[in-house]
Amino acid sequence: MKAPRFAYTRVTTVADAVSLLRQHGDDARLLAGGQTLLATLNMRLSEPVVLVDITGIEALHGVAVQDGFLRIGALTRHVDIERSELVAQRLPLLTQAVPFLAHAAIRNRGTFGGSVAFADPAAEWPACALAADGELILSNGTNERRVMAGDFFIDLYQTDLHPDELIIAVEFPLPGRQRRFAFTELARRHGDYAIVGIAVAGDISGGVMGDLRIVFLGVGNTPMRALGAETALNGKRGDPAVLAAAIASLSEDIAPSDDLYTSAAAKSHLAGVLLQRAVKSLLHEGETP
């Protein structure tokens, strides 16, 4: 379908965007890459009065290393992350995840901040933000505050972002030399939303895993951190009994629901399969999960 009527305006500063958000309240929507927003408008799932195009805010673009963090500007496109040498060297989790993210034509426009703000529980970036201890930088035009990804995703499409705030960037602490990452997911068609996906970070020393972050996508109302599985695997090697215990603990960690194609039981099973693959990849660096 065609989108409903709306007004369109461009801003070049965070302050101007915030001022429009305050003026229009719930009737205003921020437009970045638009790869989710425009689809929902076309399906008439939402009818905003005004779209505020923020892509002209220069300060929100780009990837940089500063003060011990890898900083991904909110308006950085998926394709910019895909092609970034800096990201590949400093936070390869994102490089591993990006091929799963929709298709090239979508990755050429969709943005990192847009995906995190929308907080789809089946999306890749929210799960990666959680697994790599990302901190969100939020601004209301005058004040900035930092929120850990673990505190940001509250419930289905609900985040800690205030109605008059923008995500400025996500900052990731630069991983130490022992930190390794794995990302994989299962989808019916390559590039579709995942049935189940997993993002894992962990220190590997002498074949032993430590300080793990195990995060699933598509199996709950938010990206789901699997604390039980982390506990089962921390300080261990990936032998079969340990893996079996970790998989068993997933029943406490995740809460998948049935959808049109896949039952909750099948998703739980697949989560275990992915956990096994991700741990194997983590322990044998370079192996594709």
């Binding site: 790869q35 425009l38 195009d53 090239a104 426009r109």
Partner: peptide, 13 residues
């Protein structure tokens, strides 16, 4: 130079 979806892009963009 980049391929995009013409239905997920507004003409004004």
């Amino acid at each position: 130079g980049d391929i995009v979806r013409g239905c997920l892009t507004l003409a004004v963009q």
